[in-house]
Design a protein around this nucleic acid. Sequence first.
RNA 1: GCGGAGGGCCGGAUGGCCGCUUUGGCAGGGGCAACCUUGCCGGGGAGGAAAGUCCGGACUCCACAAGACAACGGUGCCGGGUAACGCCCGGCCGGGGUAACCCGAGGGAAAGCGCCACAGAAAACAGACCGCGUUCGUUGAUCGGACGUAAGGGUGAAACGGUGGGGUAAGAGCCCACCGCGGGGCUGGCAACAGCGCCGGCACGGCAAGCCCCACCGGGAGCAAUGCCAAAUAGGGACCGCGCGCGGGGCAGGUCGGCCCAGGUCGAUACCGCCCGCAGGCACGUCUUGGCCCGGCGGUCCGGGUUGGCAGCUAAAGGGGCGGUGGUAACAUCGUCUUUAGAUGAAUGGUCAUCCAAGGGUGGGCUUUGCGGCCUGCUCUGGACAGAAUCCGGCUUAUAGGCCCUCCGCGCGU
RNA 2: GGCCCCGUGGCUCAACUGGAUAGAGCAGCCCCCUCCUAAGGGGCAGGUUAUUGGUUCGAAUCCAAUCGGGGUCA
Length: 145
Amino acid sequence: MTPPEAPAQTTGGNSPAVLSFDDSKRRAECSLTVLKTRKDFLRAARAGRQGTASMMVQARRRLDTEAETGIRVGFTCSKKVGNAVARNRAKRRLREAARAILPEKGLSGWDYVLIGRAGATASRPFDALKGDLAYALRKLHDPAK
RNA sequence: GCGGAGGGCCGGAUGGCCGCUUUGGCAGGGGCAACCUUGCCGGGGAGGAAAGUCCGGACUCCACAAGACAACGGUGCCGGGUAACGCCCGGCCGGGGUAACCCGAGGGAAAGCGCCACAGAAAACAGACCGCGUUCGUUGAUCGGACGUAAGGGUGAAACGGUGGGGUAAGAGCCCACCGCGGGGCUGGCAACAGCGCCGGCACGGCAAGCCCCACCGGGAGCAAUGCCAAAUAGGGACCGCGCGCGGGGCAGGUCGGCCCAGGUCGAUACCGCCCGCAGGCACGUCUUGGCCCGGCGGUCCGGGUUGGCAGCUAAAGGGGCGGUGGUAACAUCGUCUUUAGAUGAAUGGUCAUCCAAGGGUGGGCUUUGCGGCCUGCUCUGGACAGAAUCCGGCUUAUAGGCCCUCCGCGCGU
RNA sequence: GGCCCCGUGGCUCAACUGGAUAGAGCAGCCCCCUCCUAAGGGGCAGGUUAUUGGUUCGAAUCCAAUCGGGGUCA
């Protein structure tokens, strides 16, 4: 009664497959990984970007030669956002928004980088924050096709 | 009641849903193993400053080793506390405040060097610009010379003791009283220092956060220290040491030598020293046998590569509560109970609701001449400074608001 | 996270060690020279010496704290 995660990962794109709640949750948890190296951040910055009121989103489709699978996401806040408390708070809200939106709207095989902005990332209502991320993902996926 | 001073404490609360990290147990999967991974259940998960990195330590590596001097840096009234400190406690002195109390890098300026602009006669040896006085030229005035003097003058941050009296030609510690200064004495105190009386006659300006002197302390670097593993690049370069190229090194056996040595000789009271040295022993050296192993080795620096993992890593001079003892106190000590984040693009949360603090607006009531104050209803805003990064003890800086204790001054009442 | 260095006109630097006038070049404005411009010459303005406090008669300088910027270390 415990199928392996392979089929969920391969179909992972934008197919509107009818998935049970348990299956979609499982797919999200095993596919979202975190960007850690500076090289990945720089490559994502050179690819497409989309700004919204509360954040800047950078996205890049990985090459087929790269071994990583699933959706990868990174979070960045510069010193312009504020002191360490403000930066950590902005990154936490971005992380929660990504956890809520990316498994539904993100594409497998892509890298995303979410950049916090001074003030707005911390003060914007959470539903609007999630809306901003979904809007940016639509704009980024559209011209890439 | 108003105003003020000192000290201590807290740093929103509860719940629902969804998450992160660490740890324990159980079960499953992978792996030879170390271990990795999935699910369920349970436990833990930022601060008083985590900050600044200004001091002091623990710990690790390097250097040197017995310590000390020199150099450099730091500290600086006295005594105590502490693992240590530039920290803390108590005391002294000076300044401020009516007071509670607060502030002070607070050793030495007769060890020496240096500096004190401008102004002023003169800025550190003392001297004399205007003055004051005597006398001479010249009797009076004026002017000039000689001599005495330093009271008064202006300048300056600072002017060679101050005030009063005597004294004098004019003056002056020239003399006297008080104050200041210096020296030595007695008393109290561990000491810094204070008090008392004596003497000396003013001889002694300031700056040491200028050099310096004195006393004390300090080897340097820092967890990105350090050790190990994996991956990857290069199979490099320079210097030094050892070894040497038909031969070298190591292990094993043997020979010879060396050393130790029961014992003996000589000197010596003895300890002991010197010499010889059989047997025995040897982590020693040489030579040899050619049985086995290695194919140059070690160190420092440069260059190149990797930016992965593990250990260090969190329980220690630990903190806190209560009680006892010593101490004025800081603190020490004893008993008992309790508590204890370990992340690494970096967790400790996201979101919603309610309540409690706080502020603004507005309605009503009470009080007041008025400003204003108190009670209550509705609504809006909405939590200060700020995030561990090896760990402790301090200091400094930031901080909405609230609570508690002690003390001082004024007013009122008793 | 540790360690180190630096803050002077709009810009680049002096003056700091050794205390008393904050100066130079470029840039800006005005004038002269030229038919005009450039170059050249003259003049002017522009500084809380990063901030605060202390030592001193006197601080850009000495001392302490704070703020800001930069570099370096596996």
